[in-house]
Simulated scan of single mutants.
Amino acid sequence: MKQYIRNTRMFFIVVMISILISGCSTIKKEVAFKNDTTSIQINNDSCPNNGDCAIAIKKGSYSIETDTTGAMYPLFTEGEGELVEFTYAVPAKEGIADGDYKETIMFQVPKGLKGIMVLKDASLSKLKLLLNKQCFCRGQAGYHLITQGRLAIKRNAKNEISFDLNYQIDGIDIIVSNIKL
């Protein structure tokens, strides 16, 4: 009986190590995708004083998928295209578990954009404008499609992108509702 218990434990350990090793391949792909990123300084007006903000323009694109529970999430693909990602983060106070707070806004830059494009309300879905709210806040956390607001996006002659985004989501409390670059 003792031998059986030892063999069962050993089998369980081998299975767990195999799962951990096989999970690393997806991490490597994500890191490779994130290496192709341009970080940008942002206007202090877009970032509340109690948090840290960052904007990145990444190469690639994403589609919006739905899991078996009905929750949406982005599925990133490498290749052509550009996407903008703004992140506002407040780290947890020392000694508080699950106290981090993060809002990430992302959208795809329209292919071939030259000059200015202004989108309002339902037309924002053309850019797959998403909010990812990460916090310990029931009913609020997760990905949410943004369909209320206004986005003015511009590509200048030097191929640089700037934008002004104002948005809201019914039923979701947000801290950052205006982002300018």
Rank of each mutant, 00 (worst) to 15 (best):
R150L: 06
I174R: 01
I174H: 00
K2H: 07
T8K: 09
T147I: 06
Q134F: 07
N156W: 08
F163N: 03
M16I: 14
I146T: 07
K114Q: 15
E82L: 15
Y143I: 11
K126Q: 10
G51K: 05
A54T: 11
G95W: 11
F33G: 00
D52N: 14
K126M: 05
C47L: 12
G112Y: 09
N7I: 05
F33E: 07
K126R: 01
Q148H: 04
A97P: 04
M117Y: 00
D45V: 10
R150A: 00
S125P: 05
V90Q: 07
F163C: 03
Q134M: 10
S63A: 02
G99R: 08
K158T: 13
N156P: 15
C47K: 07
G115V: 01
Q148T: 13
E82A: 04
V15H: 06
F12C: 11
P91F: 11
N50P: 01
I174L: 11
L20P: 04
S63K: 11
S25H: 07
V15E: 00
Q3A: 10
G115Y: 08
P48A: 06
Q134L: 09
S18Q: 07
T37P: 01
N132I: 01
K59Q: 13
L151V: 09
V90E: 12
R155T: 12
S22E: 06
G142A: 09
K158G: 05
N35E: 13
K2D: 06
T66H: 06
G112L: 06
A141G: 02
G79D: 03
D121Q: 00
S22W: 11
V31K: 09
N7H: 01
